[in-house]
Simulated assay, not measured.
Amino acid sequence: MYRFLLTPRWLALHVVVLLVIPAFLLLGQWQFGRFEERSASSDQVTTNLAAPPVPVRELTSPGGTVSPRDRHRAVTAAGTYDTGASLLVRRRTQDRMVGFYVLTPLTLADGTGVLVNRGWIKAGATADSVPPVPPPPSGEVNVTGRLRLSETEESSGIRDRAGLPAGQVLLIDTAAIGRRLPYRLLGGYVELTEESPAAASAPAPVPAPDVGGGGGLNLAYSVQWWLFIGIAVGGWAMLIRREAADRRAAAASASPTGPDPGLDPGSGPGHPDPAPDPGSVSERSPVR
């Protein structure tokens, strides 16, 4: 009954199902791996945001890099803003509007510096117009902020290019910006959350990162791929059962189920002649 499973059409279906199962399994595992990675990163960022601030020199050094595990860690620094080296970072969105980050180096007592993202300002009326930028506090300033990694094209998804207006950049690339300055910069940069003394007017603070998701969408995708395996196997089994049932029904309808329709059921061997109907035979009078 199940020899039809060895026909070319069914063999092709078996191959498709056998290829789909491992493919869906690997896709589910990949999404689950992304979920675990993002959950771990979210937990690390949450811990860093809640940790007490430490001096920035404890987590980075001149010409060095920031470890990913120290991302968003609260740090402190004291120094003087180098207003002449301020930069505007283009194409930064906040509150659903495009604008600039205001990036100003803070020179430290040991002669090094650290980049400080002082906040966000709305873009001007045209792409080339420069909006007014609130100046930083003068003199020595104590800043507190979140430590961030230096940006690259790969990490930010922003493609750098030349020919920008003077004083503007697309990436907060500490190494590239440091080559323009007469002092060495610490690796990474600080996203300002508080400064003392405070400026009379300041750019809008950059919001803290949203760590609520934790890769939940990746978990849903992984479960979805694994459910597709059950759907594929269940559909394959259902098609086999339906084909077998159809073949059984066809075989049953093709086999004889009763006597030959051309044969009189009341005649033939083993059947006595029927008795005559008494009402149909005329009585004959005796012959005299």
Rank of each mutant, 00 (worst) to 15 (best):
D95C: 11
D95K: 15
D95S: 15
R96H: 13
M97V: 14
V98L: 08
G99W: 01
F100G: 02
Y101D: 05
L103V: 15
T104R: 03
T104Q: 08
P105N: 14
L106T: 00
L106A: 07
T107L: 13
L115I: 08
L115R: 01
V116I: 14
N117C: 08
N117R: 03
G119H: 04
G119I: 05
G119S: 07
W120Y: 10
I121T: 02
K122W: 04
K122H: 02
A123L: 08
A123N: 10
A125W: 05
A125D: 12
T126A: 07
A127K: 12
D128K: 02
P131G: 09
P131L: 11
P131I: 09
P132Y: 12
P132H: 13
V133F: 13
P134M: 09
P137H: 12
V141I: 15
N142Q: 14
N142L: 14
V143N: 01
V143Y: 01
G145I: 06
G145S: 09
R148C: 11
L149S: 05
L149V: 08
S150C: 07
E151A: 03
E151S: 04
T152R: 10
T152I: 14
E153H: 05
S155Q: 11
G157M: 09
R159A: 13
R159Q: 13
A162H: 15
L164M: 15
A166D: 15
A166Y: 09
V169Q: 06
L170K: 04
L170N: 01
L170Y: 03
I172E: 03
T174D: 02
I177A: 00
R179K: 15
R179S: 14
R179H: 12
P182C: 07
R184G: 05
L185A: 04
L185C: 01
L186H: 08
G187H: 03
G188H: 02
G188I: 02
G188E: 04
G188C: 07
E191D: 14
T193P: 10
T193H: 05
E195G: 01
S196V: 08
P197C: 08
A198G: 11
A200G: 09
A202G: 08
A202R: 08
A204I: 06
P205N: 04
P207M: 05
D210P: 14
V211E: 06
V211H: 09
G212W: 08
G212Q: 12
G212L: 11
G213L: 11
G214E: 13
G216V: 15
N218E: 06
N218V: 02
Y221F: 14
Y221W: 08
S222W: 03
S222A: 14
S222L: 00
Q224R: 08
Q224Y: 07
W225H: 07
W226F: 00
G230S: 10
G230E: 07
